[in-house]
């Protein structure tokens, strides 16, 4: 890996991190949900600065070409994050359903009270 590539990747990672921190600062992104992204970026940055870790790991699991190792790990992480989001969407939709139903029942009671006055 050339030093040039390391710098390019490093700049991308740091900018992404700054964008996320700025969004947290403006309360557009909950720290709770941003944390996994920040962690991932920090890990990526460490690997960018010390690429020998990647070579070592690739050798240990038996992947010949270190770049394949990077793709492999990236893919696994992406799948985990998408899966987590799918689960949380499912939970959200149940909560929205419950709220909608309670709201409709309350609205009905309110209409009846108002109508009887």
């Amino acid at each position: 890996m050339t030093i040039r590539l390391q710098i390019v990747i490093g700049v991308i990672l740091v900018s992404f991190m700054l964008i996320i921190v700025n969004m947290i600062r403006k309360k557009k992104f909950d720290l709770r949900y941003a944390l996994s992204w920040l962690t991932m970026l920090v890990v990526a940055l460490i690997l960018d600065i010390f690429p020998r870790i990647v070579f070592g790991l690739a050798h240990v699991i038996g992947i010949d070409i270190p770049s394949n190792m990077v793709f492999f790990v990236g893919l696994i992480l992406a799948i985990i994050m998408i899966f987590t989001i799918a689960v949380s969407v499912s939970r959200m939709s149940n909560r929205v359903k419950k709220l909608t139903q309670e709201l409709a029942l309350l609205q009905k009671e309110l209409d009846e009270i108002k109508g009887n006055k």
């Binding site: 929205v96 359903k97 909608t100 139903q101 709201l103 409709a104 029942l105 609205q107 009905k108």
Partner: peptide, 23 residues
Amino acid sequence: VLKLPINLGIGGAVQSGYLYAYR
């Protein structure tokens, strides 16, 4: 009439009816 503020689809709509019946 029970007014759902968001479209829930058939399952959620019918369930609202059961909730109304139970309460």
